[in-house]
Amino acid sequence: MHSVALAVTDGTPLFELAAACEVFGVDRELADPWYSFMICGDDGARVGGWLNAGIGRGLDALSEADTVIVPSCRDAEVPPPPALVAAVRAAHAAGARVASLCTGAFVLAEAGLLDGRRATTHWAHTALMQRRYPAVRVDPDVLYVDDTDVLTSAGKAAGMDLCLHLVRQDHGTAVANTLARTLVVPPHRPGGQAQFIPAAVAHGAGHVLGDVLPWALDRLDRPTTVRDLAREARMSPRTLARHFTAVTGMSPLRWLHTQRIRLAQELLETTSLTIEQIATRTGMGTATTLRRHFSGQLGVPPETYRRTFRGLTP
């Protein structure tokens, strides 16, 4: 059973802690086994400054976990507690996958785990992180960054995006999608946190693509060009590209490609369709094209992905 440990110190904000508890600490029988879950921290630590967290283990127990979740810092302007930094560093050295939610990235950076890596945090604190930790390649535009054994997420709700991503890694797309439906949240939100930064909201987060995105998703099996999307959205290709970047964080064609790969993942997990049939359903055309793009994006061919995740489908 994959073990997940949540690191808590006095004053840890409640929201991200609750998201991790909801995803990893509740056995929903979506996969067998699910996760073993423990909260580690200082005895008597209060979440949000008032709620007794019911700590089960000390911070040293983080080293026993397969995955360590580090929620937000109480105050990003203040260096994180040395004991927490040391415990997270030791857990990573022991082989744990370490993921931070929101400003928890400052703990990872203080521990040296983000040196030379791409990482993110809440957009309001990305400039501070870059100044304080110049060795970190801070990306202010994304919802989360997956750098194999170290993962970081943007602010607040992006922590749920990252938690679902971890479930998707461990148990497959179908399980993550089912969990997302249970929690009544999107299994994958398009775009990055740029769409939530005040300066960007006025420009491109006014749901200008609210009609064209579902339209494109309904016809992934057919060839679709930028001109087709622009015609459906009733705007020029150049204007469409600008809105796509603001809303989804990627170009129109890159977004289409990503959706086709995600559909291929779901079909591989939930159906017995052949690779050729899935290539047709996803608009990839041929099995050869699907294999090339699937392997390029996920690092494994479709057949290997199916063997890995087919038996985990709920």
Rank of each mutant, 00 (worst) to 15 (best):
H2G: 03
S3R: 06
A5T: 02
V8T: 03
T12G: 01
T12N: 08
L14W: 06
E16K: 07
A18C: 07
A18W: 04
E22M: 08
F24L: 06
F24M: 01
V26R: 07
D27V: 03
Y35L: 01
F37C: 02
F37M: 05
F37S: 04
C40Y: 09
G41A: 02
D43N: 03
V47S: 15
G54M: 12
I55T: 02
R57H: 02
L59C: 02
L62C: 01
A65N: 02
P71Y: 10
R74V: 03
R74H: 08
A76Y: 09
P79A: 11
P79M: 11
P82F: 08
A83Q: 09
L84R: 04
A86Y: 05
A96T: 03
V98D: 05
V98I: 12
T103G: 09
T103I: 07
T103Q: 09
F106A: 07
V107D: 04
G112F: 04
G112R: 06
L113Y: 10
L113V: 08
L114P: 00
D115T: 14
G116K: 15
A124D: 11
A124C: 10
R131T: 11
R132G: 05
Y133S: 11
A135D: 12
V136E: 05
V138Q: 04
L143G: 06
T148H: 11
D149G: 11
V150N: 07
L151W: 06
L151V: 03
L151P: 00
G155M: 05
A157Y: 08
G159F: 04
D161Y: 07
L162Q: 01
H165E: 00
A174F: 04
V175T: 05
V175A: 02
A176Y: 03
R181S: 07
V184H: 07
P187I: 00
P187L: 02
R189F: 02
G191T: 00
Q193P: 00
Q193H: 13
Q193K: 11
A194P: 01
A194V: 05
I197S: 07
A200K: 14
A200C: 14
A200Y: 14
A202G: 15
H203T: 13
A205D: 07
G206N: 13
G206T: 11
V208R: 15
L209I: 07
G210K: 10
L213D: 10
P214M: 13
P214A: 14
D218T: 13
R222L: 15
T225D: 08
A230N: 07
A230H: 09
R238Q: 09
T239R: 15
A246I: 05
T248H: 10
T248L: 12
P252L: 14
R254A: 15
W255S: 07
T258P: 00
R262Y: 08
R262S: 08
A264H: 10
A264T: 00
E266Q: 12
L268G: 10
E269A: 13
E269T: 09
L273C: 12
E276P: 02
Q277C: 09
Q277A: 15
I278V: 12
I278A: 11
A279Y: 10
T280Q: 15
R281G: 01
R281H: 14
T282I: 06
T282C: 15
L290P: 00
F294A: 05
G296K: 10
P301I: 08
G311M: 00
G311Y: 00
L312P: 00
